[in-house]
Design a protein around this nucleic acid. Structure first.
Lengths: 95, 95
DNA sequence: CTACTATTTCGGTGTTTGGCGAAATACCAA
DNA sequence: TTGGTATTTCGCCAAACACCGAAATAGTAG
């Protein structure tokens, strides 16, 4: 859980998650979207992977990353631990 | 929003939030629950305040901190931006 | 095997962060 | 005013972090 929050603390990593939300992408595709060295992004991928926020999938020399949505439940659950709202939460419109 | 995630990234700060969830407490009371210098905790309070996660209230020389639950909605909303689940979230039991 | 492409790992640098104790501030009471 | 208590701010240090370019790895094709 600590690793998840650590991973979410960096704006670049949150942006990577946002980008992967649309569709899965290769490391190279992602790198075109950021003004950062590929090695820097690779480091971010490692952090996100360690937090189990993304999964990877190799095809040939290309590595594709995709969001692990199942972890989402876990984060929300822990947020409840902090805030413990009694009020109904989030009458949310579908996104 | 960045400040919120940064604030949540540290385990001590998350524990402070958990402790404040039960009831509001003074800086001194909180300091008794942690093996850290008061000055260190004061720094954490500042981070949590900057993120608008806690509010403070002075009575005499004693400062009381309390959780700002309204920020919770905001965090959940942004989590949806990352994970964009369509499923209903969290049919949660009251805690 | 070599050559090429995609990506990661390594070694380094500058900045940020979490910790401390000491000094400063804020308040109340005498 | 002085004294006492509660808390914060100030310097400092060490560890962690984000970043880079260069070198290494992993795979495919010839």
């Amino acid at each position: 859980m600590n690793e998840i929050f650590k991973a979410l603390a960096d704006p670049t990593r949150r942006e990577i998650l946002r980008v992967l939300r649309e569709r899965e992408r290769s490391a190279g595709e992602i790198s075109e979207l950021f003004p950062l060295a590929k090695s820097t992004l690779s480091g971010h991928f490692n952090v996100l992977k360690a937090a189990d926020l993304i999964e990877q999938d190799r095809r040939g020399t290309t590595i594709t990353y995709r969001l692990n949505t199942s972890i989402f439940e876990e984060v929300v659950t822990h947020l409840f631990d902090f805030f413990g709202t009694q009020q109904p939460i989030a009458q949310r419109k579908e996104s």
